[in-house]
Amino acid sequence: MKIGEVARLINGKIVSGNLHSGKEVNHAFASDLMSDVLTLDSADILLITGLANMQTIRTAEMADISGIVFVRNKKPTKEMIDLAEESNIVLIESASSMFNVCGQLHHAGIKPLF
């Protein structure tokens, strides 16, 4: 599924990396623990998280993550948005809960990593 389609599905707003919203993501991982995200071997996945700080973006950069969905209205700062732009990472803001976003995307065919 294209990341732009992910944003539409969950009623989210793309706030960074719009140029890359045509990128395909087939798998997602949900966590607020960045050390956990860093144990994943797969690349080009979607991260669903409630943690919005610089380390979320850095983690995505290091782990080759294509897009991040911030749930529960967590808003990335200007600094985070700039860093994400630089690293070609798509950022999506969503008002929904983590469980809701996961449920909707799973239902729409996005697969878990394990």
């Binding site: 623990l33 960045m34 050390s35 995200v37 860093l38 700080n53 380390q55 983690t59």
Partner: peptide, 16 residues
């Protein structure tokens, strides 16, 4: 921990 670390997973993951 607020930064998403501090779960004691860093060193084992470096080793991996």
């Amino acid at each position: 921990r607020e930064m998403g670390f501090g779960a004691g997973m860093g060193l084992p993951n470096i080793k991996k």
